[in-house]
């Protein structure tokens, strides 16, 4: 028991795929958080495919986040 060394922190990913997935998720997620939501995204114009900008922009971010999770799953992260 005396020779037990705690493992390296699990808060930081150790593999390359893990780091990529974490970084992408955090970056995309920040686009769906203030201050982005309350400044750059906070407008209805221009309308995109008949929908307000704010709504479409967040939908794109949400879709990107889902794709990151699916990519991580497929890579076995």
């Amino acid at each position: 028991m005396d020779d037990y060394r705690p493992p390296r922190s699990h808060f930081l990913p150790r593999t390359r795929d893990g780091r990529t997935a974490t970084l992408l998720f955090v970056v995309f997620f920040l686009f769906a958080m203030p201050p982005m939501t309350h400044t750059a995204l906070n407008r209805a114009d221009p309308w995109i495919l008949g929908l307000p900008f704010f709504y479409v922009a967040l939908l794109v971010v949400y879709t990107a986040l889902i794709l990151v999770l699916v990519w991580a799953y497929r890579r076995g992260v």
């Binding site: 997620f29 769906a32 704010f54 709504y55 949400y62 889902i66």
Partner: peptide, 19 residues
């Protein structure tokens, strides 16, 4: 209004937390 579209953020986070 449209602010409740914030709901997408917590549903995405639920997926990541589960993962």
């Amino acid at each position: 209004g449209i602010g409740f579209w914030a709901a997408g953020t917590w549903t995405l986070l639920v997926g990541a937390i589960t993962y």
